[in-house]
Design a protein around this nucleic acid. Structure first.
Lengths: 203, 203
DNA sequence: TAACCTACCAAACACTTGTTAGGGAACGGT
DNA sequence: ACCGTTCCCTAACAAGTGTTTGGTAGGTTA
């Protein structure tokens, strides 16, 4: 069932984004491999072959979805990292920025979560592995700085802490729905409160 | 490349477990849909058709992998929940038990993480949805009890807290490797320390 | 030795998959 | 009225998919 009301007069680049948005939605819901090109086309209100007027292949759709997401993500991250904040403030800003990206690119984030691990081995998606390396450097570095500067506890395995913080943020994409009760900023605030101060009541 | 040294004299039920173990390993690494039956058979040192002597279908392998995992999981959970512990102690026991299950059934947990969401809609895998409901009831109930009894903070969205705790535990299956530096119990201890008390240094 | 069972192979089947080639309707510019 | 562009359809293809069928080596039992 596709809802198609527009008088099929949509300029080229916008149509691309529309199609990529629906493709991302289906990929995120069903999984990339489990999603057929025919399913995506059906959701877009056209036939499978017609997609190939806009895109080279199914893989190139996935590529474009993930790369545009990562581009925008790093645009925000780099801004935060260049601001010269303290460790705690950097973590807070990164987490907040992350939830904003989840809000904007929820399907892309969900796809990234599920597929990036075995996609990163393919040469075409090598930038996924690059991004992950950069990601680890930024977060782990900030955490280490926080430990030496006395902002964070020093009795924890720092790599465990890194994975803990990283995962808690990004898995949110699996249940987050835009337009829910909480804004991305509010969710970030509560997440940070839990990660930094814990959920136990202080006595 | 399959390593096969045994003189193909293995009793039936054990052979089943062997095959399911390798299938789970491949499913977890490549994704269920992206994994072909031929790939699993190859990893097991036999041809694709030969798998159908042991199993009805590819889907029934997945079914058996997930259901046996969930059976064992709930065996441990029910034991904890029946012990009549306080909220905090219950959470601690559940987390510890969870990491033990990850240690035992890492591939199954990884598969469950990736596929359960869209599998739960299929009638055959309805038990996945049931398990998730039961899961939420146990964890959320314990957290609520902890809030009213003064063990946990009351200024947080309880459902957000639930998802936070739940996710932080289970995503560990994506990076955990048995035989690593930390035992499941040690990982559980540090995770609990972070979740309960936070990563910030108390001043 | 004969009958039998287990665990696999060899070869094919029906179907789905991503993808392509040619064609045509709608529309704007000239 | 003509041309060109945009965007989609029709119809097919080749490769890969899960699965089935018949057969058989090797061990166990009688």
């Amino acid at each position: 069932m596709s809802t198609k009301k527009k008088p099929q007069v949509t300029p080229t680049p916008e149509r691309r984004r529309e199609l990529l948005a629906t493709a991302a939605e289906v990929f995120a819901a069903q999984g990339y491999n489990a999603t057929t090109v025919r399913r995506v086309a059906d959701e877009a209100g056209m036939l499978a072959g017609s997609l190939y007027y806009h895109f080279d292949s199914k893989e190139s759709m996935l590529d474009e979805i993930l790369s545009t997401f990562l581009d925008e993500l790093w645009q925000g991250y780099d801004e935060v990292l260049a601001a010269g904040l303290g460790p705690r403030e950097t973590i807070e800003a990164l987490v907040t920025e992350s939830f904003r990206e989840i809000d904007r690119h929820r399907p892309a984030v969900a796809i990234y979560q599920k597929e990036s691990k075995h996609l990163a081995t393919q040469p075409r998606f090598a930038y996924l592995a690059d991004s992950q390396t950069k990601f680890e450097k930024a977060w782990l570095g900030t955490l280490e700085r926080g430990v030496t500067e006395g902002a964070f506890r020093d009795d924890l395995d720092i790599r465990l802490t890194y994975r803990f913080v990283r995962d808690t943020v990004w898995v949110a994409a699996s249940w987050y729905r835009p337009g829910g009760h909480h804004s991305p900023e509010e969710i970030a605030r509560q997440y940070l409160s839990m990660v930094l101060d814990g959920i136990a009541l202080r006595t």
